[in-house]
């Protein structure tokens, strides 16, 4: 990809900038689509139509909303810590955006094919916690504070099962580089027809995926674990004092985070950009299509869950994590390791 860009642009710098900006364009287009999709999913789950006025089936509704948000007054509470209050939305976006650098979007494009890809991704997403606490504390609002505290506790706790289930995949794959992990999943050899995706390779990886998926629901604050911003209890949690585009950036970051974690799940369990039909419909462009399709399917499941289930309480949330998910992920990790040793 970088060579191709260097060929069509006058300077290397420009090629590098364009190379780095590709995920940004992707996230923006995705966010427009995902917010529209969320509304449509919600609407159809609830037996109504959702946005219908702006464009075909309301596809441009999100654009209209973004325009509205841009025109809104940027309100900063008098007693807020001004610098932190303004800085928090950017930090949260930077954290989720930077993490996209190690995601292999197709066989032809990865931001940076580093050998510690998974480690980098997990480290950089921890910044999300920091920015949420920053936003909560800087707002100087009691609801925000409660939301921030909840979020800190929740994200720190749920990082443990996430990391443990990611680690189980690494044990099987033997590499921290997500590109390598994807490449080793190509081909259709399991039982003669199933693709070589990791989830089919080891029965315990299926358990690992369940743990992983539950944890990323909590990591990205989705129902039933949306406690940091639970609107019926904490008004809007850490976002309470935010308005206009700053709030919009939180929204964007939240959706970007959903996609990021879903894509990570796709790379680790569902063969990344590999086609489910072996060499049929293969190649860099199709690879991108398959990758995004799988990612969006996981995002869709997250939305589906959101519009079906009620919300857990904060102590129940913690109990699920510490009493169920963490012990299960440790046991599962050992079982996976044993399976790998034996077979």
């Amino acid at each position: 990809m970088i060579e191709f860009l260097e060929n069509i642009t006058p300077s290397t710098t420009m090629a590098l900038v364009i190379h780095a900006m590709i995920p940004l364009g992707l996230i923006l287009v995705y966010a427009l689509f995902a917010i529209w999709m969320e509304r449509k999913v919600a609407a159809h789950v609830q037996d109504r139509l959702g946005p219908m006025r702006v464009g075909w089936h309301g596809w441009a509704q999100t654009i209209a909303d973004m325009l509205k948000l841009l025109q809104k007054e940027d309100i900063i509470p008098t007693d807020a810590s001004r610098f932190l209050f303004r800085f928090a939305p950017f930090l949260i976006f930077v954290a989720s955006y930077a993490a996209f650098a190690v995601i292999p979007f197709s066989s032809g494009y990865i931001g940076s094919s580093i050998n510690i890809g998974v480690f980098y991704l997990l480290a950089i997403t921890s910044l999300l916690t920091l920015s949420v606490i920053m936003a909560a504390w800087a707002s100087n609002n009691k609801w925000s504070l409660l939301g921030g505290m909840r979020s800190a506790a929740q994200m720190v706790s749920y990082e443990v099962p996430t990391i443990m289930s990611v680690l189980s995949v690494i044990v099987v794959a033997g590499s921290l580089n997500l590109m390598t992990v994807t490449e080793m999943q190509s081909g259709n050899e399991i039982l003669g027809f199933l693709p070589n995706w990791l989830i089919f390779q080891n029965p315990f990886l299926l358990v690992a995926f369940v743990i992983f998926f539950v944890s990323i629901l909590a990591e990205s604050h989705r129902v039933p674990f949306d406690l940091p911003e639970s609107e019926s209890e904490l008004v809007a949690g850490y976002q309470t004092e935010y308005s206009g585009m700053r709030w919009g950036i939180f929204m964007l970051a939240e959706y970007a985070d959903m996609l990021l974690l879903s894509l990570l799940g796709v790379v680790l369990f569902f063969g990344g950009w590999n086609s489910p039909f072996g060499t049929f419909m293969d190649g860099p462009v199709w690879g991108f299509f398959w990758f995004m399709l799988k990612g969006m399917l996981l995002v869709f499941v997250m939305m589906w869950i959101r519009w079906t289930l009620p919300r857990y309480r904060v102590d129940q949330l913690m109990r699920i994590c510490w009493n169920i998910l963490i012990p299960a992920s440790f046991v599962n990790f050992v079982l996976i390791a044993l399976w790998e040793m034996i077979f």
Binding site: A42, Q46, D47, S230, S232, W307, T308, L309, P310, R311
Partner: peptide
């Protein structure tokens, strides 16, 4: 109030 939006609309 408990976060289940859909039953409300049903």
């Amino acid at each position: 109030d408990l976060g289940a939006f859909t039953p409300f609309l049903y």
